[in-house]
Design a binder for these strands. Structure first.
Lengths: 208, 208
DNA sequence: TAGATTGTTAATCGATTAACAATC
DNA sequence: TAGATTGTTAATCGATTAACAATC
């Protein structure tokens, strides 16, 4: 891609995608940046600027075709292809993620679930058996694994991430409470739940 | 609080808190903004600016006392007090959150877990029985509930949020895939997992 | 054509970084 | 005191908003 697009823009794309999906479900055929801006509580200017980072998806005097724009944003985000995901760490959160993401209509498919605890071996979560971590290299060899979700204790996160990268998995959805940003050749997306909760806590406290 | 502090700053505080906690565990007594900046891959200038939104916690020529700064940031975030949390929606994710957050040393305590599915009634998750949603008003009356985590289908999220606010709960940790930002008198913190996954997906796609 | 609305340039605003005087 | 490092002001950078010519 030619010019670097800021993460601020990228963070907004899934929200546009969601609103357009809802409009689509409601049978709305076209929408102007102005109408969309009112629904989403953002400026029309921002919507047009954001979209024009990727191309001209609208038409003067008409607005945007909902189905077309929805599909285009889907393409940009890469959700119109299937992405195979494995989950490392089959605790509560790992099992929830394994069961949860499948529900989304977007194209992420959980194909494996791993842990180190021998007591969990073979336990079924939905239609997936929990596998032991030493089966991971073979599994990756035999399956097209694109993303690994790390739902394991922070102590094991970094070494596991390094192992994943060496096995050829270059995208990590990190739920462990550590930063993995010094690992080369990998895209990291963090979900730090306790950070999120602290932010909430601050905003409550401030309000008083 | 006098001047409005931007959410960009607030978002960084939990990360400072985490790094200071680790330094504390490692027995480090003091640290300069410069040393901390190297560890965290941010600028020293940003650290000093961020902290000075809340007061002068350092000392010229010395730096920052780790224990003191850790504690002060904890106070700002409100994690040195206990916050009672209930979880609405006892599916996979709700059960995971109910079991998970308790593990954190920060002061969030899950005291109730609710669902509408009668089959789940009374089922124990850790030491909490799943209660039915119609027991919620009494529960809130008899307990000091500060935060509600919404881990339920998007279709029910808004009406549940409205009900919570009317019952006196003014902080929502929202895992449902909807925006609740048009509800008055409530602080919302969103965790949109599928948005996060899409962002990851974009960053993979871009890389290629 | 006239009206509507985009795509895009220009202006503004806010956040980040740099610089340095204050001070421990 | 001299050296180190903060707190804070000033400069820069980037993101958001406004404005409007292009055009459907």
């Amino acid at each position: 891609m030619d010019k670097q697009i800021s993460q601020a823009v990228i963070r907004r794309l899934p929200r546009y995608y969601r609103y357009l999906g809802e409009l689509l479900d409601d049978g709305v055929e076209r929408i102007s940046s102005n109408d969309l801006s009112k629904r989403m509580h953002v400026t029309a200017s921002q919507i047009r600027q954001d979209l024009n980072n990727f191309g001209g998806f609208g038409q003067q005097g008409y607005g945007y075709n909902v189905a077309y724009l929805h599909d285009e944003i889907g393409n940009i985000l890469g959700v119109n292809e299937t992405h195979n995901v494995i989950v490392i760490g089959a605790g509560n959160l790992g099992q929830a993620i394994a069961g949860y993401v499948k529900f989304e209509r977007v194209g992420f498919k959980i194909i494996g679930l791993f842990d180190t605890n021998p007591e969990l071996k073979g336990k079924m979560v939905r239609d997936l058996p929990i596998q032991m971590l030493d089966e991971l290299p073979d599994f990756i060899k035999n399956n097209d694994v694109e993303i690994a979700a790390l739902t394991l204790p922070k102590a094991n996160a970094k070494s596991t991430a390094l192992k994943l990268v060496s096995l050829g998995v270059h995208a990590i959805w990190n739920f462990a409470h550590v930063d993995l940003d010094d690992i080369p050749d990998v895209v990291i997306e963090n979900v730090h739940l306790s950070d999120s909760l602290m932010q909430l806590s601050y905003n409550i406290t401030k309000q008083k």
